[in-house]
Write a protein that binds this DNA or RNA. Structure first.
Length: 290
DNA sequence: CTGTTACTACGGCAGATGAG
DNA sequence: CTCATCTGCCGTAGTAACAG
């Protein structure tokens, strides 16, 4: 193979050109395979001189990743931590909020659904040795917990979506109540009206009656706790969101996988990489069709 | 100065379980 | 049984920053 020609989405073998470079040679901010790959293309690894890429080859910025010999995965740098933390916080907010109001919900179908979801989040799935919630707090979400969490988020989205439809159907997007400030009548959103009434020192029965029935009381309660945080997953999913922040790392940078024996694998379509679990505080990534 | 700790790059691997 | 996968938990090198 000539070093000025590379094949995408397959292993390009190491050639004579890099035979003098050891794959395992590392340096400051320079990972395995970078010197060897650099030798193939007569370039030096950027290392500390560049925070955006490892090699500059054929007018492209290259980001080099060595796959884990164990399971063909790789991890990302700390740059992605902020993006992941934002997602994690929203997810934890949802479950914390549900746990807090759990006891205040009135028995019924919707409460049972929420109970199941909370229990599932506090359970281990697949081969996991810790629950989803524990995993989120310890920054270690296993593959099966990761899959299950995605399902749970979708269930919560479905629930809040149906509540939204019901609010619209009942035509109570706005409710008129007396102001706590000056006693005058003011129009409040459903959520604000609920929160206002829920603070009143009146019996639960009276509160429920104001919203029609206990099931609808539950629904608005749940909705008021979740809708803000679930906005992050509007028109997307937990997994898709993780995939997006993972792929965004490679905007304007070509991902090149390296392997001691097999050579190097340039990834043509970044959609071929996906996040499948969280380790050490960030996404762990795999490549399709490897 | 020197010695030490902190920080930021970079992945690694042991043990258990499940598939065949 | 053997082998691959899954899960959880860490490690190392090089340099900068700081204490004395």
């Amino acid at each position: 193979m000539k070093s000025d020609k590379i094949d995408l989405d397959c292993w390009n073998s190491w050639t004579e050109k890099s035979s003098d470079e050891k794959f395992d040679r590392i340096g400051q901010g320079i990972g395995k395979g970078e010197y060897k790959l650099g030798a193939e293309f007569d370039v030096e690894p950027e290392g500390q001189n560049s925070s955006t890429h490892d090699l500059y080859v054929m007018n492209e910025k290259w980001e080099i990743k060595k796959l884990d010999d164990n399971d063909n995965s790789f991890r990302l740098g700390v740059k992605i931590s902020a993006s992941y933390l934002n997602i994690k916080i929203k997810v934890l907010n949802c479950f914390n909020a549900l746990s807090k109001i759990q006891d205040q919900l009135v028995s019924g179908i919707i409460k049972e659904k929420i109970n199941k979801i909370i229990n599932s989040a506090n359970s281990k799935h697949g081969r996991s040795e810790k629950s989803i919630i524990d995993g989120l707090y310890t920054n270690e979400v296993s593959g099966s917990n990761f899959d299950k969490l995605d399902e749970l988020i979708e269930e919560l989205k479905e629930i809040t979506h149906n509540i939204e439809k019901e609010i619209t159907f009942r035509n109570i997007q706005e409710i008129e109540l007396y102001s706590s400030y000056d006693g005058k009548k003011i129009i409040y959103s459903t959520i604000d009206a609920f929160r206002k009434i829920n603070l009143e020192k009146i019996s639960k029965e009276k509160k429920i009656n104001l919203f029609g029935d206990s099931e609808f009381f539950n629904k608005i309660y749940i909705y008021s706790e979740l809708f803000e945080d679930l906005k992050l997953f509007k028109d997307t999913t937990f997994k898709k969101k993780l995939n997006k922040i993972t792929r965004d790392v490679f905007n304007d940078v070509r991902l090149i996988l390296v392997d001691k024996q097999k050579g190097f694998w340039p990834v043509s379509n970044i959609e071929n990489i996906y996040c499948y679990r969280i380790t050490h505080g960030g996404p762990r990534v795999r490549v399709k069709n490897l």
